[in-house]
Structure formats: structure tokens, C-alpha cells
Amino acid sequence: MSTNLIDIKGLNLWYGENQALHDVSMSVKPNSITALIGPSGCGKSTLLRSINRMNDIIAGCRVEGEITFHDKNILAPETDVMALRKKIGMIFQKPNPFPMSIKDNVTYGPRLHGVTDRESLDKLVEECINKSALWSEVQDRLGASAMSLSGGQQQRLCIARALSVNPEVILMDEPTSALDPIATNKIEDLAQDLKKDYTVVIVTHNMQQASRISDYTGFMYMGKLIEFDKTENIFENPSEELTERYITGRFG
């Protein structure tokens, strides 16, 4: 049995004729933060979205290889994709709260999965909003529209919403690119707190962010995972010349 929570082996992915991922293999350790970096179009978001099969919804997308989660291949046709996405949640670049109250945003998922007990839902709301470091800012206005929150608060609400269905992994696709530095700091601190209970995989364009918050970093280029290592090794002494050139800005 692997000590890794997720093992990606020989992953190839095509959008129609265009191959977006080439033989990618990497592992994600539990209770860690793994960052994926690389230039635009390198395949990092595609790789991230493969981990909870979000690419399934893209017409013409074809995948080969293996992604094991708890030693089961999630690419197998019999995988319950809804159950998978409950265990592997996702946060997107642009905060996307539902146009409903703060509280309802958090209870939406559990309700969908059959939780109706009001006391349990109230407890869950407080727990999840607390974990997403938003409670002190919204506790007295849980009935207010989520759309009234600032961008940073909306993003943390989205994280609370993801936590409400008790996931094990949180995938973050450039979660701070639309946020100011203060809101970005809060999300970065939050990611550090979350790894006590969850496993985080984050795609970021911001190399300083990757170096600040992640334990492992993968550098991707043209659909290939060029280098994957402990973050300190990648940013202090990368093994591959291409990685060195990218992170020192000598690329192209």
C-alpha cells in the first residue's frame, strides 16, 4: 500500500487531436501542499483538473494512464465521479459563490447529500466558516447575500463550501490571482492551516507563492512534468536546467 494519497502514473491527456499532457507521473503526500508551476498553457490546470475528473465535462477530452486515490484508479469507468468530487474539492481562480446567503452556500452541499438536521447544519456552518478563517467577519450576518462579500471573503467562503462536504483533498486553481495582497495573504495562511486536516494541490503563476506555502513543487512545460521535488530543492537548487531558467526568469 502506497504512503501517497494520490499517485499519478503515465498520464497522457488529449483535447481532440491536441495532446495536453505527456506521460506525467507524480505523487501527492497526505497533509501536504503541492504546488504546480509553469508558463501559461503548460498543462498545470489540466493536470489539476484530472485529479477530480473535471476534464470529463470537456468534449473531446481523452485520458490514458492512471491516477490512484487511496490505491484505487479514479480514471476507471466505474468510478463514482460525484463521490470523487466530494472527496476531492476544487477552488477556482475567480471566487464563485452561489447567489444565495452566506449560510446557504455552506449548507448547499450537505443538503444535497441528504443532511437536513438544522442543528447539525448550523454546527457545520460554524465549523467550516471557522476553518476557512472567515467566521469573525461574517458570524453576525450569515443570512446576508454571499455576493455582498469582498473578493477575498468570497474566496474563503468558497473554501468553506468545499470543506462542508468533508473532503480529503482540496484542489486550488490560481485561487489568489484575482485577489489583492492582503486577501492573498489570508488565503495563503489558510492553506497552511488546512494542511493539518486536508491535502492541498495548488496551481499558481506566482512562484513566490509556491515557494512560500508549498511542501512539494512540480514544474511543467509544454504538457510535461519537467521536475518534481521538495519545494526548497526546486527554488534553491533545481536539478533541471529548464526549471532553473524558468524560475530565474531566463526563459525563452
Binding site: 512562484m207 515557494s211 527554488f235 534553491e236 537548487n237 533545481p238 526549471t243 532553473e244 524560475i247 530565474t248
Partner: peptide
């Protein structure tokens, strides 16, 4: 510039 890798070293 917050240099990294070879530049930082």
C-alpha cells in the same frame, strides 16, 4: 527581485 535558484545562490 526576490531571486531564486542560481541567482539567489
Amino acid at each position: 527581485h526576490q531571486p531564486m535558484a542560481g541567482d539567489m545562490r
